[in-house]
């Protein structure tokens, strides 16, 4: 899992049924000190946790599908937590 910052929204009307109603964000991976780390990527938000501007924790690869109620969705990354603070 990694830390990221939501920097944008991807609008898509035509998508596979598994991700209907799920928002897709452009996320910039960041370090704990707020510094950017690597290239932005698209992250799904199945539980509607995040909003643009938020710091989040996201999970990648096979485990990303587990964030959906069905455990079955063609996504490579999912939001799992909204970060309040890092102490």
């Amino acid at each position: 899992m990694k830390l990221g910052k939501v920097i944008g929204v991807v609008w898509a009307t035509k998508k596979v049924p598994q991700i209907h109603g799920c928002r897709l964000y452009v996320v910039q991976p960041i370090l704990e000190n707020g510094q950017d780390s690597g290239q932005p990527l698209v992250v799904a938000d199945p539980k509607n946790i995040a909003a643009p501007g938020d710091r989040i924790v996201f999970v990648t690869n096979t485990d990303a599908a587990q964030a959906f109620d069905t455990g079955f969705a063609p996504v490579n990354a999912s939001v799992v937590e909204l970060v309040d603070d890092i102490a």
Binding site: I7, G8, V9, V10, W11, A12, T13, K15, V16, V75
Partner: peptide, 18 residues
């Protein structure tokens, strides 16, 4: 590899990134 969405628009809120 699978195409799973057709993008209408990508809205970047952070002006420094867009």
């Amino acid at each position: 590899a699978v195409i799973m969405a057709i993008i209408d628009e990508v809205q970047i809120t952070d002006p420094a990134k867009s």
